[in-house]
Amino acid sequence: MKIWLSLFAFLLGFKNTAAQSTKADSEKLLEYYETQRYADAAGYLQSIYPENTQDVKALSQIAYCNMMAGKLPEAEKSYLKINTIQPDNLPTLFSLASINSRRGNVSNAKSYLQQIIHLDSLNFNAYKQLAGYADTPEMRLKLLKKANALNNTDPDVAYDLSMTYKELRQNQPAYDILKTAIAADPENFTLRQAQLPIANLLGKYTEVIETGEKLLKNRADANVMNDMGQAYFYVKDYKNCIVLYKALEEMEVQNEGTLYFMTLSYRELKDYDNAAIYAQKTINEAISEHTTLYYAALAGIYEAKNQYNDALTAYKRGLTFGTSNIIYYRLGLLYDLNLKQPKNAATYYQLYLKNKPDQEKEKEQIAYARDRITSSNGK
């Protein structure tokens, strides 16, 4: 659409210029344009007008043809001439910003966009483009907020602004920005899909499921299925969670997160055999900062099956990836209550206490661990 608008503007300009010059062959130029031979069009125009021409319309036509032909240095040269003859012309500044952007000269591109904003403080496109060069999320947020205030239904700005809010962990504004843009374009699947993980973070699980079902009718998307699976888990619909994540597994797009949710779903359904299988799959999928947590989950499943030695092995394997209050405490309980080894239990209770558990959130566990240490020492 933008190309055809530019073509229309070019032809209008050419018509006016041609009226002043008997040298230009309008039919030849039109043929070049219709066949997208922009380099030939530029060469033809340059053969007609002298190199030192001050004719702004002619320079604009030459510059535009060179830019469309990818001859960016030549296009910039003509636009700079125009900017000298007619400074502070917004279309010229936008063209110079675009050329410098395409050539990777970020500093110059930013400078031209800033000039535009100085001349027109309400120029939506300048703020939108300048946001792409922001050095920090905070600066990008500031520019995108300005653009969104000027046009809150533009889908590109709404998407970028929402993602910036999300990056800054401001989930409610991220959700609200997308909600406004979606209201203006309910069939915009890109915006609806972008809203799903944010809605999950805000606990809008029913909405995620309902929207996800509509999106899946359009096409089977792994990201949508992932978001829906989480929502199903949090509303305790473990069977549907498993169905979706099994589908992802069959598509070979599973990850440690989907496998972990399957582990927990099987555990909640008391299907401990499958829970153990998926706990192991989770561990195999990715060794990460969460690995200790995954081993804790696997060990807990073994405990539920009364496989205490397997649980012991899993807990200790988890500790090889880092310290963990959860594992220290659970090992204490395992040795204390199931393996009947109070001295070993006391060792892990002590490690738990030394690892500085949260005094408020874990006060009951802390009190219990201290009491069991005292009981062990008294024996």
Rank of each mutant, 00 (worst) to 15 (best):
G132Q: 05
Y352E: 04
S265N: 06
T291N: 04
N338W: 13
Y44S: 00
D120H: 01
I366M: 05
F94A: 02
Q115H: 10
L113I: 08
H118R: 12
C241N: 11
N66V: 09
E364S: 12
L178G: 02
I198Q: 01
Y232Q: 02
L334S: 05
Q86Y: 12
K142E: 12
M68R: 06
R37Q: 12
P137H: 08
K2S: 14
A296D: 10
R372K: 15
R103Y: 07
S265I: 05
N255K: 03
G203W: 11
A181C: 02
T92E: 09
R103I: 07
K15D: 11
V106G: 05
F189Y: 15
S60L: 15
I326H: 09
K15T: 14
S6V: 15
K77S: 13
M163Q: 14
N83C: 04
L353T: 04
A247R: 11
F189P: 01
V56D: 00
N89L: 08
K2G: 06
Y33E: 13
S375D: 15
Y302V: 06
A314R: 05
L244T: 00
A9W: 15
L353I: 05
N274H: 14
D185A: 15
E252W: 10
Q280S: 11
N226G: 11
I62T: 04
I242Y: 03
D310F: 11
Q341S: 11
Q61G: 13
L113W: 01
Q114C: 03
N105H: 13
A109T: 07
P87H: 09
P357T: 07
K343Q: 12
G257Q: 14
T320W: 06
K239E: 15
L353R: 05
V235C: 00
E34R: 14
V56A: 00
L293E: 13
Y368S: 02
T35E: 13
W4P: 00
G229P: 06
Y295N: 02
K23V: 10
T320Y: 09
A147Q: 03
S6P: 08
K142N: 11
S98D: 10
